[in-house]
């Protein structure tokens, strides 16, 4: 956590763009430069500035956006729910579907079904996110395809319009993550199915459903949960960055994208800090879930 903020501070604030000259006119005097630098706090020691940044994060007093003067905290509060609503369905479906396909492939390991699923997942892994997005747009959003959904935008005011706007981004997210998810889950499940206690179950007449859904699944929950928890921060930030900037959806990704292109430091700082927080929260929930799932961790 400290590490994340430290590196991001180092890169974006300390070595980041110097606002001094933007605020001043041409040919500023030495005196003016010093004044502005002082105002911006550039002249203070490195560690003090880093401390200030940490305090801002902890107190959620994130300052004002450079580009429109709106409080950063307010921007985050407005955009974060949009991003969650955008990526959540795709994230859930992508993982559930990957889990199901991985389980199926692992159960029929070496059979044609396994080979089919695995080949499909390699194909899925080989298509770039961008290609998937543009391809889906052509197929679903333009007169050259089905023309069912909007090309871009986000005017959600109810379940109907939510579905209308969320479908294509969700499909894109599912398609791009499915290949990776399926491969990962298959590897985990195949290992679990090989274990001795699954053989015991078979020797005692357990049905495939009982073996898979009760025992294989529960035993593999640790790696599965780890993957899910740790991908949350990335999907929320990175996934939405791309989807929102492409589909023009006013979520945190678009805000970040605009901040990147315009060099809006307070926002970038806040987003990075937010990611750090998300990461730590994911870590904590993960540890908590571990002890719920695996008795060997719960009772030392």
């Amino acid at each position: 956590m400290l590490g994340v903020t430290f590196i991001s501070f180092l890169l974006m604030v300390y070595f980041g763009p110097d606002k001094t000259y933007e605020l001043l006119g041409k040919n500023p005097t030495e005196e003016q430069i010093r004044e502005v630098r002082h105002e911006l706090g550039y002249d203070r020691p490195f560690l003090v500035r880093y401390g200030d940044y940490l305090r801002e994060l902890v107190t959620f007093d994130l300052g004002l956006s450079d580009s429109n003067g709106e409080p950063v905290a307010a921007i985050l509060a407005r955009t974060l729910p949009v991003s969650l609503a955008l990526v959540l369905p795709g994230f859930v479906i992508g993982n559930l579907l990957g889990l199901a396909l991985g389980l199926l492939a692992a159960w029929y390991r070496g059979k044609w079904l396994d080979k089919l699923v695995m080949s499909a997942s390699v194909v899925g892994m080989s298509i770039s996110f961008i290609v998937i997005i543009i391809g889906l747009q052509i197929l679903l959003c333009t007169p050259y395809g089905l023309n069912l959904f909007p090309v871009r935008g986000w005017q959600v005011d109810g379940p109907g319009s939510y579905l209308y706007y969320v479908t294509v981004p969700t499909l894109a997210l599912v398609l791009v993550t499915l290949g990776y998810n399926t491969r990962f889950y298959r590897a985990v499940m195949a290992e679990e199915i090989e274990r001795d206690h699954i053989r015991t179950l078979r020797a005692y007449g357990a049905s495939p459903a009982e073996q898979l859904f009760k025992h294989v699944l529960k035993n593999s929950l640790v790696p599965v949960l780890t993957r899910i928890m740790f991908s949350i921060p990335f999907v929320v930030i990175s996934g939405s960055l791309l989807l929102e900037s492409y589909f023009g959806i006013p979520g945190i990704g678009l805000v970040t994208f605009n901040a990147i292109t315009s060099g809006d430091q307070p926002i970038l700082k806040a987003v990075v800090g937010l990611t750090g927080i998300l990461f730590v929260v994911a870590l904590m929930i993960n540890d908590m879930l571990y002890s719920l799932v695996d008795p060997r961790i719960a009772r030392p």
Partner: peptide
């Protein structure tokens, strides 16, 4: 017909009592 396995450590499911 029931079977008793060689390695009780691995033949039992670790996450069920």
């Amino acid at each position: 017909i029931a079977m008793i396995f060689q390695q009780p450590a691995t033949a039992l499911d670790p996450v069920f009592t």
